[in-house]
């Protein structure tokens, strides 16, 4: 059965190409949400196995979305992988990522083979 991945990122082009790559690389069903304020609603209806979450987004940042997921009794069990183009380590630790606790953080540009490996580990498919 295809694993379900939810992409939450305001960069429409990036999500579009990431979806194409993921679907080409494995048996994934990928849904895109470019509006972070709708992430929780989309996740509730899509029921993903893993969430790939951007950090810096207008409306709601990755940390806020992560907090929403954690306070949801079903979604709090869904692993979250954070993707960020932040380069400043001080900014990283001051920002949302530090609050994300157990989340995995991967830098943008994303190494696709690394991402696939992390997805496998997170979804217990490794």
């Amino acid at each position: 059965m295809a694993r379900k991945i939810l992409l939450v990122d305001d960069e429409a082009g990036f999500t579009q190409l990431l979806k194409m790559n993921l679907e080409k690389s494995g048996d994934f069903e990928v849904t895109i949400e470019n509006d972070s304020t709708k992430a929780i609603a989309t996740a509730r209806s899509f029921q993903p196995d893993v969430v790939l979450l951007d950090v810096v987004m207008p409306g709601m940042d990755g940390g806020d979305v992560q907090a929403q997921f954690q306070s949801d009794s079903i979604l709090n069990r869904v692993p979250v992988i954070m993707l960020t183009a932040l380069v400043d380590s001080a900014e990283l630790s001051a920002g949302a990522v530090a609050q994300s606790g157990s989340s995995i953080v991967l830098p943008k540009p994303v190494d696709l083979s690394l991402l696939l490996r992390v997805i496998d580990e997170a979804t217990g498919a490794a």
Binding site: E11, G13, F14, L17, L18, M20, N21, K24, V56, A85, L86, V87, D88, E91, K108, P109, V110, L112
Partner: peptide
């Protein structure tokens, strides 16, 4: 830092394109 972030986003997209096409 902000400008670097804004440049990294298109770079991330480019790498995904290269990954896709290199297959």
């Amino acid at each position: 830092a902000g400008v670097a972030h804004e440049v990294k986003n298109p770079l991330a997209l480019l790498l995904l394109g290269v990954d896709y096409l290199s297959g």
